[in-house]
Design a binder for these strands. Structure first.
Lengths: 229, 229
DNA sequence: ACCTGAACACCGTTCAAGT
DNA sequence: ACCTGAACACCGTTCAAGT
């Protein structure tokens, strides 16, 4: 892994993302990446302007792993579902890096390509340019939120025993007062961990698509007066 | 603000949240909170087990600011909308602390009270216990995602000129190739900043509620065979 | 019980210097 | 052009000690 004399930017990003996958964001540092390449910390400043620049590069790498499906003739919502599922697959491969992606979609080439496709599909859906921008932002961020929210997700991979964590969480919920929190106690199992991650995510995408399809396309902002029964 | 001799846990949390509001999560440290109270950093360890414990307390404080509306006789989705709007108002008051809340709803008293109300309303909607847990998690996290995703949000309050940042972002999007990214370029204004935050958030809540209302209530997990056309 | 001080192992980053 | 080394201003946290 450590390139001997000459450093390679791509290799550095690979190492950084691997570090995040292993130990979470807290495990990522310029010094640790440098160390893994047998270089001094300062060597990285030739390839990234600063720590934030390294974070940018990690987000870009993650987004570059999204396989954009070819546009085809199907309905916009079917194509959008496939697209969101591709994005979701990439996010799920790097759950600890998801928080980096939130604010970096429009500042990286692969993120822009993704945004372009989303906006195109929402235009097909009949949304105005402004509305498509708003809705697309919301859809992609809700998607990322699913990964951050997945019940039973561990903080870092070295926390290893995500099963043990889930059991502990379940126990703490079951220990609550059933008079005060009847629904929470009854749902302890489901709240502590997913019975099926795939079902959780499929339904999450469902909810997003359904939310978009079911909305008023472009209502008058405030007063519901002019058109009406 | 600094209590002289004896430290007060509540005051410490107030200071910590104020620090996050001012300078973002990067500006929060045990040492800075201690300094503002004229105390040594180690003094805080009497009140919080560690840094993560301080983060827990901040999240709890934020959630305690959510004004839970009284249950009334209206339809579940109307009550849920009001509830989500209350949560959103609290999150918007502390946008930089939102990321803390994501994983801490079920580990704080006010978060549990909130979860209880959400689950009760989703039970009214006819969802199974498991389904309500899943859907409630997704709804609350999509809500938090809205705040993280709001176009034109600044990184910290000391970044002051969030307008300048938006103008810069707009310019960078307008500089893109309109052949490669026609929809992105056309939507540059809307992507760089909200024309109206209130509209953005109202529609975000709409999308969440609509998504829940529009879903299959409890479909057979896989094969769509038994119940016909 | 509550707080301090010194110390340790980490950060990101600047600056001057090496090849 | 590319990398190093020493130094600075920060972290969280442990440990032994003060009142």
């Amino acid at each position: 892994m450590p390139a001997r004399r000459r450093l390679d930017r791509g290799d550095l990003v690979t190492t950084a993302l691997a570090l995040v996958d292993q130990d979470g964001m807290a495990g990522l540092s310029i010094r640790r990446v440098a160390e893994r390449h047998g270089a001094s910390p300062m060597a990285l400043y030739r390839y990234f302007p600063d720590k934030n620049g390294l974070d940018d590069a990690i987000a870009e790498r993650l987004l570059s792993e999204v396989g954009l499906p070819e546009a085809d003739g199907r309905a916009w919502y079917e194509q959008l579902r496939d697209l969101l599922e591709e994005v979701l697959a990439a996010l799920r491969r790097h759950p600890h890096a998801v928080e980096l992606v939130f604010t970096r979609i429009l500042t990286s080439e692969p993120g822009l390509a993704l945004a372009e496709r989303v906006l195109a599909l929402l235009a097909d859906a009949g949304l105005s340019v402004e509305r498509a921008a708003e809705t697309g932002t919301q859809a992609l961020c809700s998607l990322a939120a699913l990964v951050l929210a997945e019940p039973g997700r561990a903080e870092s991979r070295e926390d290893e025993d995500s099963e043990a964590a889930a059991r502990l969480k379940r126990a703490s919920l079951l220990a609550l007062s059933p008079r005060r929190y009847p629904h929470v106690v009854a749902a302890a199992d489901a709240l502590a961990s997913c019975s099926s991650e795939d079902v959780f995510y499929r339904r999450g995408v469902d909810m997003i698509i359904t939310g978009i399809r079911g909305m008023d396309p472009d209502p008058a902002p405030a007063a519901p007066a002019s058109t009406g029964p």
